[in-house]
């Protein structure tokens, strides 16, 4: 793959890639760093690439996220912290507040459930593609989606 083609492919999906990573790690600056690392890895390996570029790139990015998670083990969310217990109420529930609330809720569920939820509901990836990105069977993805939804319900007032 030439550099020009690589850049044009990246241009087409960089927004989704960065949103995916930002939703996973809850920090846009860190998400951009991980995205850059993933793009460098992808470019180095682009000679061997065959198939769906977006799914392939998301898989590399997910692996980079996991590597980063292993390097810097983040402390688990404090469930007693006031901001963690905060839920949306009638007039307060504007769009940005809902986003913050959702981000906090996502941060509190296990990483695999979060990944499946983000890929399915934010990036509109079908279960089969999520299975490819996460390198797990489709049935396991469905399980993570189901359990993830149940966990999110505990932290979000609908």
């Amino acid at each position: 793959m030439t550099r020009e083609r690589f850049i044009s492919e990246v241009r087409a999906c960089q927004g989704q890639l960065r949103r995916f990573l930002a939703s996973l790690c809850g920090d846009t600056a860190l998400a951009d760093d991980i995205a850059q690392e993933a793009l460098v890895r992808a470019y180095v390996a682009s000679g061997r690439f065959i198939g769906n570029f977006k799914a392939w790139l998301f898989r590399i990015a997910y692996n980079c996220f996991i590597d980063n998670l292993r390097r810097v083990r983040q402390p688990a969310a404090d469930l007693d912290a006031p901001e963690a217990l905060h839920v949306a109420g009638g007039e307060e529930s504007d769009a940005s507040f809902k986003h913050e609330e959702l981000q906090r809720a996502l941060a509190r569920i296990p990483e695999k459930e979060r990944t499946a939820i983000v890929l399915h509901y934010f990036e509109d990836l079908p279960v089969k593609e999520i299975a490819t990105v996460m390198d797990i069977p489709s049935g396991t993805v469905k399980y993570y989606l189901s359990v993830g939804r149940d966990h999110l319900k505990q932290y979000i007032r609908l």
């Binding site: 850049i7 990246v10 960089q14 989704q16 960065r18 949103r19 793009l39 460098v40 986003h99």
Partner: peptide, 17 residues
Amino acid sequence: PETPDEGQFIIETNARL
């Protein structure tokens, strides 16, 4: 969440590549 703007991202990517 909304997708972030391309902004400096592609320029930085090009520099890294």
